[in-house]
C-alpha cells in the first residue's frame, strides 16, 4: 500500500513505522481490538523515544481513542488501515476507514471546530454536561490534552483517511 505520508506537497518526509490492515468485520468482532492494536503499536514504536514507557503509554492512550471512533462508526464491510509514521518528534497516525458522504462532512466540520478558538470551552462543556463523549469531543480532547493536529485526506470512494499528528516527545509532563 502506498505510504501517503512519505512526501506530500513538499512536506518533509514522515518515515513509516508500522502498518496494520484488517477487514472491518474482523475489527468489529471484538471491542478489545482497539486496545490491542493501540497497545501493540505503541510498544513497537516507542522503544527509541527518550522515555519509551511514557511515550508508549501516551501514544496508546491517543491511538485507542481514534480506533474507538472508527469502531463506533460500525460499517459492515470494507477495510480499515492503521499506519504510523514518524518525523522527528512527531508521530503521525493515518487511519483509513469506510465513510459515507454525510460522515465525511461531520469530520470536516469537527476538524474546523478543533481549530476554532472555542475548542477548550466546548470540551469542558461536554465533560460537565454530556453522559458520554461524542466523536467530536473525543477528537477535541486529543487536540487539547495531546496537542494533536488533524487533517482529512481523500482515500477513495466511500473511505476517508484521518491524519493525526501527535507531538508527544515535546508534551510537558
Amino acid at each position: 500500500m502506498n505510504i501517503a505520508s512519505q512526501s506530500v506537497g513538499g512536506e518533509a518526509v514522515f518515515k513509516p513505522m508500522i502498518q496494520i490492515d484488517l477487514e472491518v468485520k474482523a475489527f468489529l468482532s471484538a471491542w478489545l481490538h482497539c486496545d490491542q492494536i493501540s497497545t501493540y503499536s505503541a510498544r513497537m514504536i516507542s522503544h527509541n523515544r527518550s522515555d519509551s514507557v511514557r511515550h508508549s503509554n501516551l501514544f496508546s492512550s491517543a491511538f485507542n481513542e481514534l480506533l474507538e471512533v472508527a469502531f463506533r462508526a460500525r460499517h459492515s464491510s470494507g477495510e480499515i488501515a492503521c499506519r504510523v509514521s514518524r518525523r522527528g518528534e512527531t508521530d503521525r497516525i493515518e487511519l483509513t476507514f469506510p465513510c459515507m458522504p454525510e460522515e465525511r462532512q461531520f469530520y470536516e466540520e469537527a476538524i474546523l471546530q478543533i481549530a476554532g478558538s472555542e475548542a477548550r470551552e466546548r470540551y469542558l462543556n461536554s465533560v460537565s454536561g454530556d453522559l458520554a463523549p461524542s466523536r467530536e469531543v473525543v477528537l477535541l480532547e486529543l487536540a487539547i490534552d495531546y496537542n494533536a493536529t488533524f487533517r482529512l485526506d481523500e482515500a477513495g470512494a466511500d473511505t476517508i483517511t484521518l491524519v493525526v499528528d501527535l507531538p508527544l516527545e515535546g508534551l510537558p509532563n
Binding site: N64, E68, S126
Partner: peptide, 17 residues
C-alpha cells in the same frame, strides 16, 4: 490508573461534577 478512555472518563467525571 494506567489507561482510561473518554467513555469512562466522562462517566466518572459526571458523577464527581
Amino acid at each position: 490508573l494506567t489507561q482510561m478512555n473518554n467513555t469512562a472518563f466522562h462517566a466518572f467525571s459526571r458523577v464527581i461534577i
